[in-house]
Design a binder for these strands. Structure first.
Length: 479
RNA sequence: GGCGAGUUGGCGGAGUGGUUACGCAGCGGAUUGCAAAUCCGUGUACAGGAGUUCGAUUCUCCUACUCGCCUCCA
């Protein structure tokens, strides 16, 4: 069995992964707060941990991996959005959650085993909070319930900071009802106009961190294998999750391995609304950039390093994917053929590919291996490439390879009439070529080249694609 | 200020205590009516300094720079 090694944020080391129960490998990843379209940064952890999910399924079997990714549907940002738009909270969270799942599916991500919503687990949160009060790890003050940081000796261990350091930083919210400035809220009172649930401390709503503790506990148990998320969540969110869960279940480890993906940059800068380089996944999809292309760009950088989204990478990913799709398509790959391969047991990962990927999710290394495998000249020799593309979530519909191979670069969209004009000119050229009238054939090609159309004579048949500098207006007079 | 990550050839981006990453671009060749596409071949890279070592891009320390978190933001 291929050995998986993962970088554990908790120990800051790359460790051999040994599941608690190989029959049920368990992973939890922090999902979105649903109040707006998912931006590109939101997509990174989803793709990273989807690849891990797929790898675990490959190695332990699809039926032996449980993946939980929550949806936070109770939060002050949602409340603010409701107030500002006049729409109901339920409407906003339902719509945004649907968008999120659609956008993530478009990027080739599998649906997790469970996608729990925070509001479905309030009872479990309350129970956990009650337990923490009873064991002295939490206290009630002015309708709030706070976690007492002092009661958990290992507080700060994950993010490598001490309580003293953090207080010295003086960036913590000092509320009069806190015993210690670092104590954080698990439950807070809700006025009538905000969502609230009845609790032993009056009508209120949960703080941010408790939901993940409660849902992970309910769906995965006190101890599970992997907990993932963006590294911006390491503090305070994950630190607080650990504190709550481990104090609620003395003796438990909570998650064995913590994994954090690095952040996304856009053209070298952090994506932010104020810099104007902020865009959503949907924005890119609507610009005609296929989901697999976006996914390939993400996979081309290791998850532990900051990833720079640039248009140059987008173009390179498009070209790579088109080439891979073309070579597989030419060698007969389609849904039927892949199904036959699977049925005959010949659908296996390339050992080197899998080994590289299993070494802390080295997706760039795995892609490099696919480049080598893509040099195969026969259908069987290309099986490793095909399997790898499916394992990475880059191809799901093998009957769509032809489309993927023939897709025009997304920065070279053209009006519908162009196709007719180009096809007509190519037919004229084909006639000239058949008559060995090279002067006329070249004249027609020059005409198309002048408009930026690239003409290729593949297998005696002319194909075309809008190239760099494509300009439809040059062809306008020939309609 | 505290904590952490990083600095690899023209660009992107892995990895390794001594031997080819890989991709793009470039260059040479094959192929082609000519091209394009494709295929084959081709790169004196590892921020700077000191140290450990037979040997360091790879380990240790220092310096410089970049970036992230610590604050609503993944």
């Amino acid at each position: 069995m291929t050995e998986i090694r993962l970088h554990n944020s908790k120990t800051r080391r790359r460790e051999t992964f040994t599941p608690i129960d190989p029959e049920n490998v368990r992973m939890y990843v922090c999902g979105p707060t649903v109040y707006d379209r998912a931006h590109m940064g939101n997509a990174r952890p989803v793709i990273v941990f989807d690849v891990l999910f797929r790898l675990l399924r490959q190695i332990y079997g699809a039926a032996h991996v449980t993946y939980v990714r929550n949806i936070t549907d109770v939060d002050d940002k949602i409340n603010a959005r409701a107030k500002q738009t006049g729409r109901s909270i339920g409407e906003i969270t339902d719509e945004t959650a649907r968008w999120y799942l659609d956008d993530m599916a478009a990027l080739g991500n599998l649906t997790p085993t469970h996608t729990p919503r925070a509001t479905g687990y309030v009872a479990q949160m309350i129970a956990m909070i009650e337990g923490l009060i009873a064991s002295g790890h939490a206290y009630e003050a002015e309708g709030h319930v706070l976690f007492s940081v002092e009661s958990y000796a290992d507080y700060g261990a994950l993010s490598g900071r001490s309580v003293d350091d953090m207080i010295a930083g003086a960036r913590v919210e000092v509320a009069p009802y806190k015993r210690d400035p670092m104590d954080f809220v698990m439950w807070k009172p809700s006025p009538e106009d905000l969502p609230g649930w009845d609790s032993p401390w009056g009508r209120g709503r949960p703080g941010w961190h408790i939901e993940c503790s409660a849902m992970a506990d309910d769906l995965l148990g006190q101890d599970f294998d992997i907990h993932g998320g963006g590294n911006d969540l390491m503090f305070p969110h994950h630190e607080n999750e650990i504190a709550q869960s481990r104090c609620a279940h003395p003796g438990s480890d909570f998650a064995r391995i913590w994994m954090h993906n690095e952040m996304l940059l856009v053209e070298g800068k952090k994506m932010s609304k104020s810099l104007g380089n902020f865009f959503t996944v949907r924005d890119l999809l609507e610009r005609g950039i296929p989901g697999p292309v976006i996914r390939l760009v993400f996979l081309s950088t290791h998850y532990g390093k900051p990833m720079d989204w640039t248009d140059a990478k987008r173009a390179e990913a498009e070209a790579t994917l088109r080439r891979w799709a073309a070579v597989l398509h030419q060698h007969g790959y389609c849904a039927r053929m892949v199904a036959a391969l699977k049925a005959s047991g010949d659908w296996r990962p390339d050992a080197e590919f899998l080994g590289v990927l299993a070494n802390d999710l080295n997706t760039p290394g795995a892609l490099a291996r696919l480049h080598v495998l893509a040099k195969g000249h026969t259908a069987p020799a290309l099986a490793g490439l095909a399997h790898g593309l499916e394992l990475l979530g880059l191809v799901s519909d093998w009957d769509a390879l032809g489309d993927l191979a023939g897709v025009a670069p997304s920065d070279r969209a053209y009006p519908a009439w162009v196709e007719g004009v180009v096809e007509r000119l190519l037919m004229q050229r084909q006639a000239a070529r058949a008559a060995k009238d090279w002067a006329e054939a070249d004249r027609l090609r020059d005409l198309l080249n002048a408009a930026g159309v690239q003409v290729s004579d593949v297998g005696g048949q002319a194909t075309w694609v809008p190239g760099p500098g494509f300009d439809a207006t040059v062809l306008e007079g020939m309609q």
